[in-house]
Amino acid sequence: MKILIIDDSSTMRRIIKNTLQRIGYSDFVEAADGSEGLAALEGVELIITDWNMPNMDGLTMVKTIRRHPSYKTLPIIMLTTEAGREDIIEAIKHGVNNYIVKPFTPEVLKQKIDQTLQQKQE
């Protein structure tokens, strides 16, 4: 499964990648903001994205993706520092499938990925 990791922090991208490797994933593509993310969608089966990023933030990117007929059901997990209930509701409303607040553990990441992929199958 090809996973697109989008975060402006290169450190966080590496931590997410290392964690994904620990839980059994190995095919990744990376982007540093929403614009780069949009340009890297080809063949992607799951997106893990930050919210607050320069140039184009994660929520704007999600809204853009959801307007595209080919990507209406592409699973998207938002992995962010934005921990407010209103933030989570807003993200889900605009097409995010699941939400993780940093800091995260491998267990939580695995659980949210499993849940998201299962929802897509249903």
């Binding site: 922090s9 450190t11 966080m12 520092t81 934005e82 921990a83 407010g84 607040v101 940093k102 800091p103």
Partner: peptide, 18 residues
């Protein structure tokens, strides 16, 4: 440098939620 900035980001975001 990235790690130190990201830690500040995570802590501020988490505190905001509380």
């Amino acid at each position: 440098m990235d790690t130190v900035g990201e830690l500040a980001n995570i802590i501020a975001g988490g505190a905001k939620g509380i």
